[in-house]
C-alpha cells in the first residue's frame, strides 16, 4: 500500500509539472501581451515595465524563473492588478470557491448515492422510474440554465431566497448556488451508484451470498456496497474537475466573489501569472482529489493494493 501511494505521488508531481509546462507555453502562444491596452504609455515606460516583470528575457528563462518561484511557493506578481501578488488575489477568492465547491460536492454525494442505491434496490418500480427522469433532467440542465432559472423563480418571483450575492456564505445566500452546482454532480453520482449496485447485485458472489442465507440487508451492506461504490470512486477525480468548472458559471450567475472570475478575466487581459496561478492551484486541487480517489479505490478493492 505504501509503495502504491508513493508511486502515485510521484506520478502526481510529474503530471503537475507537465500541466504547468503546457499551460505556460500555450498561454504565451497568444498574440498580445499584458500591457497592450495601455496605449498611452511610452515605449520606454513599457520596456521598463516589461523588464521589471522579467518579460524581456527569453521564454525559456522566464519559464525557469517561474518554476523555481513555484517551488518556493511563489505564484508571482499580477500583471494587471498593480502591486498585488497572485497569491493574495487567489487567497481572497479561493476560500469562497472552495467552500462553495465542497458544499456542492458533499450535497451531491450525500443525496445522489443513496438515491441511486434506492433506485437500484427498487429496480423497475416507481421510485426507480422517478429517479431516472430526475437524473436525465438534471444532467440535461447545465448550471448556466439552472442557475438563472432558480434565481428567477425562487429569488425574484417567489422571493423565498436572495436572487444573488454571497454574504460570506450565510445559509440563505448559499442555497441556490450550491443547489445549482450540485445538481448535475448529484445526477451523475446517482446514476453511477445505481448502475454500480445493479451490476454487483447480478454478480456470482451475490448469488453465492444469497445461497448462504445471509438475508437482503446483510448482503447489500456487507457484500454489495463496497464494490458498488467503485465506479463512483473512480469518477470522483473527474467530478472535482467538473465542479470546479461549474463553479466558474455559478460564481458568475450569482455574483459570488470566488476565484473563478480570475481565470476568464486573466486570460482576456493576458495576465499570465494570474492565469497560471489559477491553473496551478486548481490543478493541484484536482490532482490531489484524484490521488485521494485512487487511494480510496485501493481500500475498497483489495486486488488493487498489491499492484
Amino acid at each position: 500500500m505504501m509503495r502504491y501511494a508513493l508511486a502515485r505521488i510521484i506520478g502526481l508531481i510529474a503530471t503537475l509539472l507537465l500541466l504547468v509546462t503546457a499551460a505556460f507555453f500555450v498561454i504565451r502562444l497568444a498574440p498580445g501581451g499584458p500591457f497592450d491596452e495601455e496605449r498611452t504609455i511610452l515605449p520606454q515606460v513599457r520596456a521598463n515595465l516589461e523588464a521589471a516583470y522579467g518579460l524581456d528575457a527569453p521564454l525559456t528563462i522566464q519559464y525557469a524563473r517561474y518554476v523555481s518561484g513555484l517551488l518556493r511557493g511563489d505564484l508571482g506578481p499580477s500583471f494587471k492588478h498593480k502591486d498585488v501578488r497572485v497569491s493574495e488575489l487567489l487567497g481572497a477568492g479561493l476560500p469562497v470557491s472552495a467552500s462553495l465547491g465542497a458544499a456542492a460536492l458533499a450535497l451531491a454525494l450525500l443525496c445522489g448515492v443513496p438515491l441511486g442505491f434506492c433506485a437500484a434496490l427498487q429496480r423497475a418500480r416507481v421510485l426507480d422510474h422517478a429517479a431516472s427522469v430526475l437524473i436525465a433532467l438534471m444532467i440535461a440542465l447545465p448550471a448556466f440554465v439552472l442557475g438563472p432559472v432558480l434565481s428567477l423563480v425562487f429569488g425574484l418571483w417567489l422571493r423565498w431566497l436572495p436572487a444573488a450575492g454571497w454574504n460570506d456564505g450565510s445559509l440563505g445566500y448559499a442555497v441556490l448556488p450550491v443547489l445549482t452546482l450540485a445538481a448535475p454532480a448529484l445526477a451523475y453520482s446517482a446514476r453511477l451508484a445505481r448502475t454500480g449496485l445493479l451490476e454487483v447485485l447480478g454478480s456470482d458472489y451475490i448469488r453465492a451470498a444469497r445461497a448462504r442465507g445471509l438475508g437482503l440487508r446483510r448482503i447489500v451492506v456487507a457484500h454489495a456496497l463496497r464494490p458498488a461504490l467503485l465506479p463512483l470512486v473512480s469518477w470522483l477525480g473527474p467530478a472535482v474537475a467538473f465542479v470546479l468548472t461549474g463553479s466558474l458559471i455559478v460564481e458568475t450567475v450569482f455574483g459570488i466573489p470566488g476565484a473563478g472570475r480570475f481565470l476568464v478575466e486573466g486570460a482576456l487581459n493576458r495576465d499570465y501569472t494570474l492565469v497560471m496561478g489559477m491553473i496551478v492551484v486548481y490543478g493541484v486541487i484536482t490532482l490531489l482529489c484524484n490521488l485521494a480517489a485512487d487511494l480510496a479505490y485501493g481500500w475498497l478493492d483489495p486486488r488493487v493494493r498489491r499492484r
Binding site: 503530471t15 497568444a30 474537475a241 486548481y282 484524484n290
Partner: peptide, 19 residues
C-alpha cells in the same frame, strides 16, 4: 487518464481567448 482528471475546460478557455 491524465486529461480526464484535469479541469480541461481551463485549456478551452485559454484557447478560446488566445486568438
Amino acid at each position: 487518464d491524465i486529461l480526464y482528471a484535469l479541469p480541461f475546460v481551463f485549456f478551452v478557455i485559454i484557447l478560446a481567448t488566445l486568438f
